[in-house]
Design a protein around this nucleic acid. Structure first.
Length: 481
RNA sequence: GGCCCCAUCGUCUAACGGUUAGGACGGGACCCUUUCAAGGUCCAAACAGGGGUUCGAUUCCCCUUGGGGCUACCA
């Protein structure tokens, strides 16, 4: 068996959406698993809506996800001549005919059909035009399209994910394959290109199922064997509707922006509609490739759960060494206009990554450790201050006084821990009542790495300065603020 | 409306005729840490309904219901 050839064929009329990204991922996994070839084809035949900007964003998105292609990108627009030739060949062979119906006439027929409650099908009136009449109209300059003749017979195929799917020709109508400006309609362009590019497996979204019988008709009329079709389920929003802009972030770039790691995104997407079997959740690339099969793809549409994506991202974040997080965190800090003063960020990243779900979150926390003045008081921090009342600033001052006596050279997690413990003992405080105010003062939050490590990573001078200022601000309890 | 696809916890899924229907996210409880997380343990949570087939159906078939997609000189 020759090695499979697959393609990912986005149209550059929008950004790379998560649904498209997952289709690309499945194509890629299939190609890598089977030792096949992945072709990238940009379907830019909709001139009105296609832009170079979109093309670039789609390519960037695929690259970001690590979905490398072996051929292309090819641009469908370059093959207009072949598309037209294929249409004219079908015309010459009597498998298609010229249609002179105008858009207005067709709209009227459609409206009429709807009014009478019947399904609209093109009534083939132009197929009955005598040859001389067709010639006369062409001569007179009347615009025309080319329609493909759909025979009244069953068109079925064995879908690699759905099994057998069958349509009746009579339910389809003679669809247009070539516009009056001689440009090809999607269904023709795709088939013509897939034939030319020797595509053996068409892996695409479920929403193309109803196009498939038309395309199979075209393959046969053109004299070629249809490829294997695999229709992968849609990705839905939390409300169960097709994922769209109104659901918020749907473009791959949005998640990149939000600090999701490409490996996490790819892992998450792979598990949407496919499972490696067993209880696996975090699946490394080589395993994913080894285990992937079209038969393993789910038939049911899947809801995109951002919370689980973020959990998964957190898993990758915790597992990755600070070295590998350095670049994206730096980039984010730059965006936030945070100066790093040439400091080695790795210890700071290590301090916070286990408690973070996104790069954004890591960067924010790193920024706070670089300069506690950047911290903002979160609701839990505020609640703690309120709950402790005047004890908050009292305990904070007590701890600060003691910490001040630690020499700069001695400032370490161990030393600092000993000091705070000492304060708690001397004044009969629970350790938490001494620790938590420090945490809130330094981070604005009740969640962070162990407080002694936090103090160490922030540094002596910055810590003491911030602690003093914070104690003063909340002197006398929450009423002060 | 017509055609097509789909149906296991709220969500992602495992199960390929015989299981106390498993795991993960999220939720709850507890443990651990003389601090918060993280981590660990446990709990609640599903086979849409009805007919068949079968010794036996979540699993195979049919119907109903529900959801989704398509129905352009868009892709």
């Amino acid at each position: 068996m020759p090695s499979p050839r697959v393609r990912f064929a986005p149209s550059p009329t929008g950004y790379l959406h998560v649904g498209g990204a997952r289709t690309a991922l499945f194509n890629w996994l299939f190609a890598r698993h089977s030792g096949g070839t992945m072709v990238l084809r940009i379907e830019d035949t909709d001139r009105e809506r296609s832009t170079e900007e979109h093309t670039r964003v789609i390519l960037d998105g695929l690259t970001w996800l690590g979905l490398t292609w072996d051929e292309g990108p090819y641009f469908q627009g370059a093959y207009a001549a072949r598309h037209q030739a294929d249409a004219e060949r079908l015309l010459a062979e009597g498998k298609a005919y010229r249609c002179f119906c105008t858009r207005e006439e067709l709209d009227a027929q459609r409206a009429q059909a709807e009014a009478s409650g019947t399904a609209f099908r093109y009534d083939r009136r132009c197929s009955r035009l005598p040859a001389e009449e067709v010639q006369r109209r062409i001569q007179s300059g009347a615009p025309s399209t080319i329609r493909f003749i759909v025979n009244d017979e069953e068109i079925a195929w064995d879908d690699a994910v759905h099994g057998r799917i069958s349509f009746q020709g009579r339910d389809l109508d003679d669809f247009v394959i070539l516009r009056s400006d001689n440009s090809a309609i999607y269904n023709l362009a795709v088939v013509s290109d897939d034939i030319a590019m020797k595509i053996s497996h068409v892996i695409r979204g479920d929403d193309h199922i109803s196009n498939t019988p038309k395309q199979i008709g075209l393959y046969r009329a053109l004299g070629y064997q249809p490829p294997v079709f695999a229709h992968v389920p849609m990705i839905l929003g939390p409300d169960g509707k097709k994922l769209s802009k109104r659901h918020g972030a749907t473009a791959v770039g949005d998640y990149q922006e939000q600090g999701i790691l490409p490996l996490a995104m790819r892992n998450f997407l792979a598990l949407l509609g496919w499972a490696p079997g067993g209880d696996r959740e975090i699946v490394p690339e080589d395993e994913m490739i080894r285990l992937f099969t079209l038969e393993g793809i789910q038939k049911k549409a899947a809801v995109f759960d951002v919370t689980k994506l973020e959990w998964m991202n957190g898993q990758y974040l915790s597992a990755l060494p600070a070295d590998e997080l350095l670049a994206p965190v730096r980039r984010q800090l730059e965006r936030m206009a945070v100066s790093t003063d040439g400091r080695d960020l790795r210890p700071l990243i290590d301090a916070v990554k286990a408690r973070s779900r996104t790069i954004l979150h890591v960067a924010e926390q790193v920024a706070v450790r670089l300069d506690p003045e950047r911290s903002t008081l979160d609701p839990k921090g505020e609640a703690l201050i309120r709950k402790m009342g005047s004890a908050f600033s009292t305990n904070l001052s007590l701890a600060t006084d003691a910490l001040e006596r630690v020499a700069p050279a001695e400032w370490s997690p161990e030393a600092v821990l000993g000091v705070v413990k000492g304060v708690a003992e001397t004044h009969g405080l629970k350790l938490g009542d001494a620790m938590q105010p420090i945490r809130v003062a330094l981070t604005g939050s009740t969640v962070s790495e162990p407080v002694n490590e936090l103090l160490a990573v922030v540094g002596r001078d910055r810590s003491l300065q911030r602690l003093r200022a914070f104690a003063a601000r909340w002197d006398g309890g929450a009423s002060a603020g």
